[in-house]
Amino acid sequence: MSRYEILSPEGLRTDGRRWNEMRRFSPKMATTTAADGSSYIEHGNTKVICSVNGPIEPRASSARNSERATITVDVCFAAFSGTDRKKRGKGDKRVLEMQSALSRTFASTLLTILHPRSEVHISLHILSQDGSILATCVNAATLALVDAGVPMTDYVTACTVASYTNPDESDEPLLDMNSAEEMDLPGITLATVGRNDKISLLQLETKVRLERLEGMMAVGIDGCAKIRQLLDRAVRDHGNEMARMGAL
């Protein structure tokens, strides 16, 4: 395998971005009519489609809580989404972990107390994988929940940050990992709620020096704020479009 440079001496990454640049982020809202809310996000080559149903009557009695709505999440990796064709089963631990992380993230942001004995079902399909998958899932789910009109306190937005080690041992955070960077560098996935930059989800899976965490988190919080603006614009554009069509 040929070794490529993650970060060239000129400060450019493999896809030509600088350290603080994100890939192209294009959110779309209300993409399917079958669900209460839906969204489609392309973040670079990572593509996720999300649909939200709810609040509905719980499909399983275990999802019935007399005090608040429960949030169930289904994550499905399409067999053709990765580089090698592989079907990920329902029982895959990594998928289960993602589902649980997503449902717990939204459980603290949605006003679940307004809909007792009901369920909000979020279903995510990953059509193409190129890094930052969990983060893109969070963003897609946020957008679909807004579309569904489920009451929530604020936007939950997520992004990833890698930590690159320069040849002189100094470190440099790189915003928004693609899959090549995810493979080679340690990185965090971080989700913030709203404007006050509180962190609701933070995941790190590879070894990294403790001192680097602060820098990565700072860059990540900025990235989340940027994504928040992009999502907000998508929501407003969609609202204007609806008003123009006479739907409102």
Binding site: A101, K198, I199, S200, Q203, L204, L210, I221
Partner: peptide, 17 residues
């Protein structure tokens, strides 16, 4: 040695950085 191996904060209350 001060190497982080893993962090897992999967949702729950949003906390200041």
């Amino acid at each position: 040695f001060g190497e982080l191996c893993q962090i897992a904060k999967a949702g729950g209350l949003a906390i200041n950085a």
